[in-house]
Simulated assay, not measured.
Amino acid sequence: MKYDSAATRARLLAAAHDEFVRVGLAGARVDRIAAAASANKQAIYAYFGSKEALFDAVLAARLQVLADVAPFDPGDLPGYAGALFDALVADPGVQRLSQWKMLEVPEPSEGEVDAHVTKAAALAEHSGVDLTTATDVLMIVFAAALSWNSTASKIRNPLDDDNSRRLTQHRAAMVRAVAALTDALLEKP
Rank of each mutant, 00 (worst) to 15 (best):
V141K: 08
S150I: 10
G82A: 05
D91C: 03
D136A: 13
L84P: 01
V117W: 07
P106N: 08
V94T: 14
F85G: 05
L123G: 07
S127D: 05
L84K: 06
D86E: 13
V141M: 04
V69W: 07
G79K: 01
A115R: 11
P71D: 05
E125Q: 13
P74R: 02
G128L: 05
G111R: 08
D130N: 09
G79M: 01
P78K: 00
S127A: 15
E112K: 08
T135F: 13
V105L: 15
D68N: 09
D130I: 06
D114Y: 08
D73A: 06
P74D: 03
E125P: 05
A115S: 14
H116Y: 13
D76T: 03
A115N: 07
V105E: 12
A145P: 01
V69I: 15
H116I: 12
M102T: 09
D91L: 03
K119G: 07
L103N: 11
A120N: 10
G128M: 06
G75F: 07
P92G: 06
V141Y: 00
K119P: 08
V129A: 03
A122H: 07
S127R: 05
P106W: 12
A152Q: 11
S127E: 11
D130G: 10
V141W: 00
G93C: 06
T118P: 04
H126D: 10
E107V: 13
E125T: 13
S127W: 11
A134T: 04
D73S: 01
L97T: 04
V137I: 03
D73E: 13
V117T: 11
A83I: 02
L138A: 03
A120T: 09
A70G: 06
T118H: 09
P92Y: 06
K119F: 08
V105Q: 15
D86F: 12
V94F: 00
I140V: 15
T133M: 09
H126E: 00
A120L: 11
T151C: 08
F72V: 00
G82L: 01
M139D: 15
T133G: 06
R96H: 04
A120M: 11
E107Q: 14
V117E: 09
D136V: 15
T133E: 04
A152E: 08
A70R: 10
L123Q: 06
A90C: 10
T151M: 14
A152H: 04
A90V: 08
F142T: 01
T135V: 08
A121M: 12
Q99G: 08
H126W: 09
A83D: 04
V105H: 14
A81S: 05
V94K: 01
F72R: 00
A67I: 11
A143T: 03
A90G: 13
E104W: 02
L123E: 05
